Amino acid sequence: MNYRALDTNKKYLVTGAAGFIGSYLSKKLLEQGCDVIGIDNLNDYYDVNLKYDRLELLKPYDTFTFIKGDISNKETINNLFDKIQPDIVVNLAAQAGVRYSIENPDAYMQSNVIGFYNLLEACRHYPVDHLIYASSSSVYGANKKVPFEETDFVDHPVSLYASTKKSNELMAHTYSHLYNIPATGLRFFTVYGPMGRPDMAYFGFADKYFTGQPIKIFNNGDFENDLYRDFTYIDDIVIGIERLLGNEPETDGAPHRVFNIGNNNPEKLMTFIESLEVALGSALDRKVEFTKEYEPIKPGDVPATYASTDLLHKEVGFKPETSIQEGLQRFADWYVDYYNVR
């Protein structure tokens, strides 16, 4: 393990700073006195008010600067790099969601491909110490071998979203090779927690409960062969990213690498749902039971996500410690308070 402590004298550019992971990471850096510049286009893919509320938590910090802008605008990115000269870039801006990529593919090409290309070009012309970027567990496609390892074959994505993330890894490797840009890709596995993304299943389940609607479970009601997900609590994710910031790749070839960042402890989807029912029940002080409807798995979804995190643990000692029961209780308590539901 060659984990080096965070350098608080460097400038950190966080794209997607009003997003779920971006806001948490920015706050963690700001709490330690880092100079953080955040950029976000504040799009309306989900409730913009939640994005503004995340930013409100960052505003009290004197070392935080927010810029409303889109990474797919090359002039915006070039001007930003020219002005602030960031030392470390963390790209968390992306059009997320597997199913939405079927409905609106243009958004994914703009943000995930063109936007990332613009950042790579900026890192080329304004050299940085380290570029960390979000990939996704989706790149593993319909791989049946579990746990997923970074050396696995990932050339058969089953959604456009996954294709854009795989393209990010290829583009980053090329730019690292050609221009010696130290770059690290992170394959995230189902990140959840308070102030999370409303398009995620657990958030949608809570929404539907309070509006009296049934939740849809895409496993055909097959409990023996239920979907498995590697749910990873947001605080654990942020610790993993923070430990990597000052640990750029050191190789003889292209200074580029990819890590899984997940829980390494997959849970059945139904276990997760039952834990959410218990957590909401505790927050509300009553029994909670969702009305459930079972449907076939959707195009682009995969039956299991399960991360091997051995490489990341070896590199920086990353080991998630938050159980789904603990993490979902924190989410449920936040949700009940934030939306003032009873």
Results as ranks from 00 to 15, higher is better:
Asp236Gln: 14
Thr15Trp: 06
Arg330Lys: 15
Asp235Val: 02
Cys123Tyr: 02
Gly262Cys: 07
Ile297Ser: 15
Asn265Lys: 14
Glu121Met: 03
Ile71Gln: 04
Tyr161Val: 10
Leu92Phe: 13
Ala283Thr: 06
Pro127Lys: 10
Arg197Tyr: 06
Val36Cys: 10
Asn225Leu: 07
Glu321Gly: 02
Asp199Ser: 10
Gln213Leu: 10
Phe203Gln: 13
Pro214Leu: 09
Thr291Tyr: 04
Ile215Cys: 07
Pro296Trp: 15
Thr184Asn: 02
Glu103Gly: 00
Ile132Asp: 13
Val278Met: 06
Gly204Cys: 02
Pro303Met: 14
Asn340Glu: 01
Leu178Glu: 05
Pro299Ala: 04
Pro214Ile: 08
Asn219Ser: 14
Val288Glu: 12
Ala254His: 01
Asn112Gly: 01
Gly300Glu: 06
Ala107Val: 08
Ala283Val: 09
Asp222Cys: 05
Val336Arg: 04
Gly253Trp: 07
Lys10Leu: 15
Asp62Ala: 15
Thr211Val: 03
Gln110Leu: 12
Leu170Gly: 09
Leu245Cys: 11
Ser308Gly: 08
Tyr294Gln: 05
Glu277Tyr: 05
His256Cys: 08
Phe81Val: 02
Asp230Ile: 13
Gly193Val: 04
Ser135Lys: 00
Arg124Ala: 03
Met195Glu: 09
Ser275His: 03
Val90Thr: 14
Pro86Asp: 12
Ser138Asn: 11
Asp106Cys: 00
Lys314Arg: 03
Glu248Met: 13
Lys27Asp: 00
Val36Phe: 09
His173Phe: 13
Glu224Phe: 10
Leu55Gln: 12
Gly262Asn: 08
Ala304Met: 15
Glu274Phe: 13
Thr211Asp: 10
Ala206His: 07
His173Ser: 10
Val14Leu: 15
Glu315Asp: 11
Ala5Glu: 15
Phe272Asn: 00
Leu280Asp: 07
Ile71Ser: 04
Ala94Ser: 14
Tyr233Val: 03
Gly19Asn: 07
Tyr161Asn: 12
Asn143Trp: 01
Ser323Trp: 07
Phe318Met: 05
Glu31Cys: 08
Lys268Trp: 06
Pro105Asp: 03
Asn78Asp: 15
Val128Met: 11
Thr174Tyr: 15
Thr76Met: 13
Tyr209Cys: 04
Thr211Glu: 13
Asp7Val: 00
Ser23Val: 05
Ala304Thr: 13
Lys10Thr: 12
Ala279Asp: 01
Gly69Trp: 11
Phe218Arg: 12
Arg286Pro: 02
Met1Thr: 10
Met171Tyr: 14
Phe331Ile: 07
Lys292Ile: 15
Lys59Pro: 00
Gly69Leu: 06
Lys166Trp: 00
Ile114Asn: 02
Phe272Leu: 12
Met109Asp: 07
Leu312His: 05
Val191Phe: 01
Leu312Trp: 01
His156Ile: 01
Ser137Arg: 00
Lys145His: 13
Asp35Val: 08
Leu284Met: 12
Phe223Asn: 12
Ser159Val: 05
Thr63Glu: 00
Tyr126Phe: 14
Leu80Ile: 08
Gly317Val: 12
